[in-house]
Nucleic acid binder design. Structure first.
Lengths: 239, 239
DNA sequence: ACAAAAGTGTTTATATTACACCCATGA
DNA sequence: TCATGGGTGTAATATAAACACTTTTGT
């Protein structure tokens, strides 16, 4: 761990007379695991329930939002170097009336293999998006706050939109990948079956990826490996 | 003025040891005036320069972001009841190093006639978007902060996107309008000439507007008046 | 020889673009 | 009667969708 913002208990801000709300960052981390969209949440023993919450913490002064994001992500989950994007800033309708926070939300994407190398699994839970529902209740009696659920839904929507008109899929894949792996990401996130010939044409018309001339022999018939042309997020005019 | 958040000098937050940044709202108000996209800015005498700034102020605790927005907008400009949309939350790279604010930015749209009824023109300036430029300098020696310029550019981009796939134009028009007025909005904001037959087909395929069966006789040949079908913002699948 | 995933084109339907003339009214 | 903006349809092009069989390898 380097460049972590020094531990700060923020003891000065709990004064009930403070006239401003407290800015905080909350992070929705998505990854594809077992052919499903999954969310990384913190396990938290709170009150009498077993709750899951989004990784998040108070924003420290004199550091940029990005620095605060990196710091909170690493501290809370052990993960570093992810794709991140700001989502929205929510007013947090105080769950417990003792304080007022403003939640600046981000979403992050990780390729599962990278994720497993870095994450601290004692701290986090991997939860299928489809297991999170309107009633705030999951299998195994786990619960999530309604406001966090709303944020996750919003993030999922953003992910779908981005997939259709950017090269964001690169953050859910290894550097080199088979065309079928790319298509799988689209099918899982967009939740629809895609014709592979049409998919191929779409991707190549966008000039999103290129051949590496290497072969992946792990499947029966070896498959060409592709890579993304742009290493940064690229927004395409249409798709 | 009703329901205004009570005046608050926020005297407690200027303590240099406060460990959190100060959340603030900044508002980009767009309107169409003299066939151009214009921005509503505050005139401010600051230091030795004549500056224009975005209307904005610190977020008060225990009020939602929306309530804070309405309050700030009315207090700073006299305007009420506008279309508003949150844009992005920026880290404000302290212009003057004495404090650290986080800027939660919104953009707002007003139809010029409504605007003129409500606005306090002693407080604000109407500035053509095209007169704001990279060098922070305008005609008449007026300046704007670089960070505010970036926010305005971002807002303008958002406006263009929204125009293409939502009914947001309703907030820049009277309740009933001629088709040519609607097309004018599109031509001004998108900055391109549009074929009126194709425009007609596009708008009606989206089911965005309907005829009122009234005629506007103010032009040479009377024109049909239309109105928007949905009174709320509607996002169309494609356009 | 069989199973499994890779690879590859054409046809059809839909959506978008380009384009020009007549009409109703006020001055 | 002329100037002004309003009103209207069709053909061409581009884009998107539907669709099935062959190939290569491992077992």
């Amino acid at each position: 761990m380097n460049h972590l913002i020094k531990e700060n208990n923020f003891s000065d801000i709990w004064n009930p007379n403070l006239s401003i709300p407290i800015p905080a960052i909350d992070i929705v981390i998505f990854t594809i695991y077992q052919n499903e969209v999954c969310v990384v949440l913190l396990k938290q023993e709170l009150d009498w329930k077993n709750n899951y919450i989004l990784p998040g913490w108070i924003v420290a002064k004199w550091y940029s939002l990005e620095e605060n994001f990196d710091n909170i992500l690493e501290r809370k989950t052990g993960i570093r170097w992810v794709y991140k994007e700001q989502l929205y800033t929510f007013w947090n309708p105080d769950r417990d009336k003792r304080w007022h926070t403003i939640s600046i939300t981000y979403f992050a994407l990780v390729w599962m293999d990278n994720f497993l190398k870095n994450v601290d699994l004692t701290k986090v839970a991997i939860v299928r998006y489809s297991d999170i529902n309107e009633n705030n209740v999951w299998f195994k009696d786990k619960k999530i706050w309604t406001d966090h659920f709303e944020i996750i839904k919003y993030a999922k929507q953003r992910l779908k939109w981005k997939l259709e008109y950017t090269n964001i899929a690169k953050d859910m894949l290894p550097k080199k990948f088979r065309m079928s792996q790319l298509q799988e990401i689209y099918e899982i996130v967009l939740w629809e079956k895609i014709d592979k010939r049409n998919f191929w044409k779409k991707i190549f018309k966008l000039n999103m990826i290129e051949e590496t001339w290497e072969l992946d022999k792990s499947t029966n018939r070896p498959a060409k490996l592709y890579r993304f042309i742009d290493s940064e997020l690229k927004i395409y005019d249409v798709m």
